[in-house]
Amino acid sequence: MLQLILFSTLNGVLYGMLLFMMASGLTLIFSMMGVLNFAHASFYMIGAYFGFEISRRIGFWPGFIIAPLLVGVVGALIERYGLRRVHKFGHVAELLFTFGLAFVIEELVNMFWGKLPVDYQVPPSLDFVAFTLFDTTYPAYRMFMLATAIAMFAFLIIVLKRTRVGLIIQAALTHPNMVAMLGHDVPTVFMMVFGVGAALAGLAGVIAGPALVTQPSMAALLGPILFVVIVVGGLGSLGGAFAASLLIGLVQTFAVAINGSLVDLIGPTANTIFGELGNVTLAQIAPLLPYLMLVLVLIFKPTGLFGNRET
């Protein structure tokens, strides 16, 4: 049991940090530009594929550096030549643009790398067992993922709190019009934020690619969960995104570990009240819990857990 709790916690935190690497960029983009970027998880996927392509040619470590930068450039270009054009048509058009973009990116990935998972391998330097506990091994690569995510989090905090750019971004989060009036080049800031957000998602993809499977559906699998994270955490709140990422990571992981159903909880009466649903175990509905949280949070606190703005 202890073993289960320990490993579930580790896995939950890791999954949560991975979510946060993407959610942080998404929430920044949303709060500054008002765009719910449906293609954000696609940048994560592109990151994984770029990482794979570079790692099989040059090596994992060059890919670790270059791939996120490339994804950032791709993101910035998309903002500059696509999104900015659509900006004048309003937020719905922008959102739909990213919706179509996600579609196109998935198809392009299908075309270039095929529909089957690609063989993106853990680098040999990290391919060992980090520790063994109750005879379950924990791979070093997962520790590396965790470390990267924490480093990125620290980096983000420092940039936002200690640099001038960070100040502008923070100001733009809450008072976008005021910032523009102060004479800052808001379009360029937008482009940079979009690029950096894409690069962060790309970084998440590069490190998640070898651990999870690199395949064309990886974006579609994570996309909606990201929205849950940033909405539950509170739109525009980085701290909220962090808390919600960890919360959802842990909830999903622990729900899987628990085999209880309503019948187990309150006895056979559950069947008379809920019918078949009485027999459904918590593990079965684990991936649903985030959406349930989303709906409940929005009903009772539309600003999200830590946010203070609705749109």
Binding site: L36, P224, F227, V228, V231, L235, L288, Y291, L292, L294, V295, L298, I299, P302, E310, T311
Partner: peptide, 16 residues
């Protein structure tokens, strides 16, 4: 509510 809150609830209900 309208706007993003409505969209997100509809997304959540749809998935559920």
């Amino acid at each position: 509510r309208a706007g993003t809150v409505f969209s997100m609830i509809s997304l959540g209900i749809g998935e559920l």
